[in-house]
Amino acid sequence: MTDDGPPQQPLELILARNLISIVQVAAFLTDAQGDVLFYNEAAGEILGRSFEETGRLTREQWNAIGPVDAQGNPRVEQPLPLTTALQENRPAHGRFRIRSDGGGVVSVETSAVPLVGPDGFSGAIVVFWPAGESVE
C-alpha cells in the first residue's frame, strides 16, 4: 500500500492563494492561527522583501512589522483587522503604519476577511495598500 502523504491545504486557501498571486493589489493569506502562508509580489514591494526570500511567517514575525507609530515604535494597543478577523470571525478594516524591511515606516489601509469552508474557519485573506498620512 502506498503512503497517502500529507493532505492538501483547504481548497479555499488554495484558491485564495491562486487569486492573490495574480492580482496587482497587495495581499496576504493566513491560516487559522494567523501565520502568514503566502503574500504576493505587490505586498513584497511594500514590505521590502519577497515571499520567495522569507517564506512563511509566524504571527510573531508578522507582528514585528506593525503596527508602529510614526517613529517605528510598536503600537501593541492598536487592534489589527487581521486580529479581529481571526478572533471574531468577521471582516474588519483599518489604517495603521508598518515597518518595511528597509526600516522605513509606511501607512497602509487594510481589509481582512475570514475564510470559512466546509470544515470551518481555515484562515483569512488580507488586502492592503499604501494609505495617506491620516493614520490615527
Partner: peptide, 14 residues
C-alpha cells in the same frame, strides 16, 4: 509545494 496543488495528495502514487 505539493500541499498547494489541488488533489495532489489524493493522486499520489496511485
Amino acid at each position: 509545494p505539493d500541499e498547494w496543488v489541488s488533489g495532489l495528495h489524493l493522486a499520489r502514487e496511485a
